[in-house]
């Protein structure tokens, strides 16, 4: 039996209301396990919306999203939230680390909603942060440098060893050198953890980093 793709999208449609224009209209998209895909598109075309639909944080107007073979929108709310916590990691442009919590605690927050036994949370978070080069795991997240915060955000995304990592414009606020370093980190971390990566970006410089690229415009069923 063939292995399920990390992500399978089928006839996915989304519009905010019946009177609003269609924001997402994707006939089909597959991301294989461990595969890294760059999704490009200009700002405001629904790239982030697609990620929230994949993560089950928004309801599609139609179609299906299967993560690791499971239809995320067919799940009940509680099951879907739990599934997201264990199977999907997310990285944001502004990292979204929680202030008032240390770097290690930010990673442990992700583990809190997983099946990982509590007694292992701290050791696992510290080991992951060390691997990713976070020098002060016990410092408050908002006291770390941008580069260190980025590493913590990546650690949090892969802490539960997800099948799929969704990265939403992860380098949009960085200069070219730091953007390259950040993408090295994200791609290496995903490769090493075995997670598939779906990265959305409007930055053309990203294209060379990914073997597989697609634009939201090309995927759109209405333009096919």
């Amino acid at each position: 039996m063939p292995e399920s793709p990390a992500l399978h999208i089928e006839k996915l449609r989304f519009q905010y209301s019946p009177r609003d224009p269609v924001v997402i209209d994707i006939d089909s998209l597959d991301v294989a396990a461990g595969e890294q895909v760059l999704l490009t598109g200009t700002s405001g075309r629904g790239k982030s919306t697609l990620l929230y639909l994949v993560a089950g944080l928004m309801e599609p107007t139609g179609g299906r999203v299967l993560v690791n073979g499971q239809d995320i929108h067919a799940m009940s709310g509680h099951t879907r939230d739990r599934f997201r916590g264990t199977s999907i990691g997310m990285i944001f442009q502004t990292f979204n680390l929680l202030p008032g919590f240390s770097a290690a605690e930010n990673v442990m927050l992700a583990l809190m909603f997983s099946d990982v036994p509590r007694r292992e949370h701290r050791d696992r978070a510290l080991a992951l942060l060390e691997t990713l080069g976070v020098e002060r795991p016990n410092a408050a997240a908002d006291e770390l440098s941008i580069g260190q915060q980025q590493r913590v955000a990546v650690a949090r995304a892969i802490a539960c060893r997800p099948a799929l990592v969704l990265a939403d414009e992860p380098t949009a606020s960085l200069d070219p050198d730091n953007a390259a370093a950040a993408m090295d980190l994200i791609q290496t971390a995903c490769t090493e953890s075995g997670a598939a990566l779906l990265c959305v970006s409007h930055d053309p410089a990203m294209a060379d980093r990914f073997a597989r690229r697609a634009s939201l415009h090309e995927l759109s069923a209405s333009t096919a």
Binding site: G77, H78, D81, R84, N96, L109, M112, F113
Partner: peptide, 8 residues
Amino acid sequence: VLRVLGAS
């Protein structure tokens, strides 16, 4: 963020 991390 808590919701993204899996909080219902």
